[in-house]
């Protein structure tokens, strides 16, 4: 599977590079930004260079679709001791998964715990008698991106009441706590100073409606938790392991901050 991952990354890198070189500066169409803002909430798309916006919006040029396509294959592939595929139970993802990704993270009724989409996929794998996909594996990213893309354009809408409320509070606390040697919080960069220039970057509101997303820096698609870890690293803070409850709670809080923003997966970012 490592092979596939590498092939996909290289293919994506070549695509991305060809796009950046081929496109004359300033010729990018100024896509309508209105649908990427809801009240004061703005998707990362709004803060993006016009060239990258155009790249994201064109399914041929957006390298993230290589992962989405791979996800479609996995959706239909039999796996595990039961010999079933996702499609065996759910049918076509276009119908069955419409709106699903927009509502995660969500309380798992079985365990009563908050789970994100990646964890939900692995719960399904367990049901099929298949081994869990590793975090940031090609397969988990591909299937997550595929499912999430079935909600493309639909508004983010997560439940934050009832049993989800304590997780939401925990996520909010993480978001607002200063940490690391630089002693900064998510809120300071993405709340207070969104729109300002931080060295080579324009700070966005740090919304998550486009994940898993393709980053030029990664030359690959990455999960939302990979992004959390890179921001925590930037402020020289300890990073949490993938799938840790604090990061899942943070996912919920940020999704609720961006409630109503359209799902953008697969987004393209610097």
């Amino acid at each position: 599977m490592k092979k596939i991952a590498e092939t996909l990354s290289v293919a994506a890198a070549v695509l991305a590079l060809a796009w950046v070189i081929a496109r004359p500066a300033g010729s990018a169409p100024d896509a309508s930004l209105a649908k990427y803002s809801v009240g004061s909430e703005k998707a990362g798309y709004v803060y993006l260079d016009p060239q990258l916006r155009a790249m994201e919006s064109d399914p041929i040029e957006n390298p993230g679709y290589l992962w989405v396509d791979k996800g479609k294959t996995l959706w239909n592939a039999a796996a595990g001791s039961t010999g079933q595929s996702c499609a065996s139970c759910h049918g076509a993802a276009e119908q069955a998964m419409r709106g699903v990704g927009a509502a995660y993270p969500k309380i798992d009724p079985q365990s009563g715990k908050l789970v994100d989409l990646e964890q939900r996929i692995n719960l399904e794998r367990a049901r099929m008698g298949a081994a869990p996909y590793a975090w940031e594996s090609e397969q988990l990213l591909a299937l997550t991106a595929y499912i999430k893309s079935m909600s493309r354009g639909m508004p983010v809408r997560v439940a934050v009441d009832g049993p989800a409320h304590q997780y939401w509070l925990e996520g909010k606390r993480y978001y607002e706590t200063r940490r690391g040697q630089l002693d900064m919080s998510c809120e300071q960069c993405h709340g207070q100073y969104a729109g300002r220039q931080l060295r080579g970057d324009v700070l966005s509101q740090g919304q998550t409606n486009g994940f898993p997303e393709y980053r030029l820096k990664w030359q690959a698609v990455g999960s939302v938790q990979r992004r959390f870890r890179s921001c925590d690293t930037k402020i020289r803070a300890q990073t949490l392991p993938y799938g840790s409850p604090e990061y899942v709670a943070l996912e919920l809080y940020i999704a609720s901050r961006g409630e109503g923003l359209p799902i953008e997966t697969p987004a393209v970012r610097k």
Partner: peptide
């Protein structure tokens, strides 16, 4: 303020291993 303290090691939260106990 968002501005980091450049000469401080006390009272910080969750500092990454490599940077613990030394100022910026």
């Amino acid at each position: 303020t968002i501005m980091p303290a450049f000469y401080r090691v006390a009272g910080l939260n969750d500092v990454a291993q490599d940077f613990q106990g030394r100022p910026m």
